[in-house]
Design a protein around this nucleic acid. Structure first.
Lengths: 205, 205
DNA sequence: TTTGATTACTTAACACTGTTAATTAAGTTT
DNA sequence: AAACTTAATTAACAGTGTTAAGTAATCAAA
């Protein structure tokens, strides 16, 4: 069935074409300015054609989300070189902030918008890349606690605290709430300082 | 000019009528389901009438936002009874989490949506209630550092860390990202545990 | 008191949005 | 060549924020 396989491949190619241009649009114009019609226009298809390849807009968002996680995972590859759990956690946090600041539109999709999450909930399983990142975080924290470097508590509790802190920084920054606390020019530095401060207090204990 | 004053008062009453019903809609149906037409329908006016009282939808959002901050400030009144900076900060954090979990639609508007912030930026000044809350946070932290109870650092740095942490918890919860870390039934408890853990490590130092 | 201006409000419309149903055109199989 | 399948389209629905034009009612001045 070589012909049917090629057909299938062509279908996948168009799917990917849609996703590629969707992501470009996100990066260029931001989440709220991406519409089915705009995506369709970019790939020179009719808007309704998109519905032959994806169930709805949320499904496209979901796949863009997944790509975001892949980008994020890549930035964390070098972490394996750091063996001290605290240092590793620290660098992981820095990478997180960096990723959020450099890819605000992706970050928005991955952690702020509810649309892609609705799709995941519908599909039952999902968010595999997200789960993967969380698993890595929990392992580091467990390591740190085993080595007596982190104030002991349930690993989920500490993971939640750490993740919430970096997510809070990025999402407040993206949504322009930090301007009220520091001057825009000092914002990025203060964000990293906040992370340093947390790790310092965490280490001392 | 008694007559012109009464006219003015009537105008204010309709303004308030619009805002009241807008907020009811937010709470009942959530941010994304509130439209100018729905608000208009509730107050039995034409949709375009709203534009006689507010410049655009964002301005309505902004005022709902302000009401949210007032609600939040009220929940913090009892804080003045607590004199130990750490305990005070701890209770402030608990109030913050509580407010976010009990008023997700308001919280969304106040700290997650970008629409009302756009209006504030346009108006130059603004966000007075938000600034007020941040000021209170900074004072407590400065107190704590002065009394040697908190690892010393620039007050903005620590304020940012603490705020980010509680905001991260609430916003991840609201946007359904915490389900991946803990079971829904344990979520609320774990959130408060995370706060406790942060305060504990912060105190020990 | 009648005219003219101001006020409060509505209707109609524009340019969008996501999405569905019906339709056309092309390619494949019998 | 006829029948069937597939891929894509056009037209349409119901909704969005917002603007311009029009309509009554109210008020001030002639």
């Amino acid at each position: 069935m070589g012909i049917v396989a090629r057909k299938e491949q062509q279908k996948q190619e168009i799917r990917q074409l849609i996703l590629d241009h969707s992501m470009k649009l996100f990066v260029e114009e931001g989440f709220s300015h991406v519409s089915m019609r705009k995506i369709a226009e970019r790939i020179q298809y009719s808007p309704t054609t998109l519905y032959l390849y994806f169930q709805d807009k949320n499904e496209i968002l979901f796949h863009c989300c997944e790509s975001g996680f892949e980008k994020m995972l890549i930035s964390n590859i070098s972490l394996s070189l750091i063996h001290n759990p605290i240092d590793r956690l620290h660098q992981m946090g820095r990478n997180y902030l960096q990723f959020g600041l450099e890819n605000p539109e992706f970050y928005d999709l991955m952690f702020i918008q509810e649309a892609p999450m609705d799709r995941i909930i519908e599909m039952g399983e999902g968010w595999s890349s997200g789960d993967q990142a969380l698993e890595a975080l929990k392992i580091i924290i467990q390591d740190g606690m085993d080595q007596g470097l982190i104030v002991p508590a349930k690993v989920e509790t500490v993971a939640m605290a750490v993740w919430s802190m970096v997510h809070g920084l990025v999402s407040l920054a993206i949504r322009k709430r930090l301007d009220k606390l520091v001057k825009p020019i000092d914002m990025e530095k203060t964000m990293f300082d906040s992370l340093d401060w947390l790790l310092k207090t965490l280490k001392k204990a």
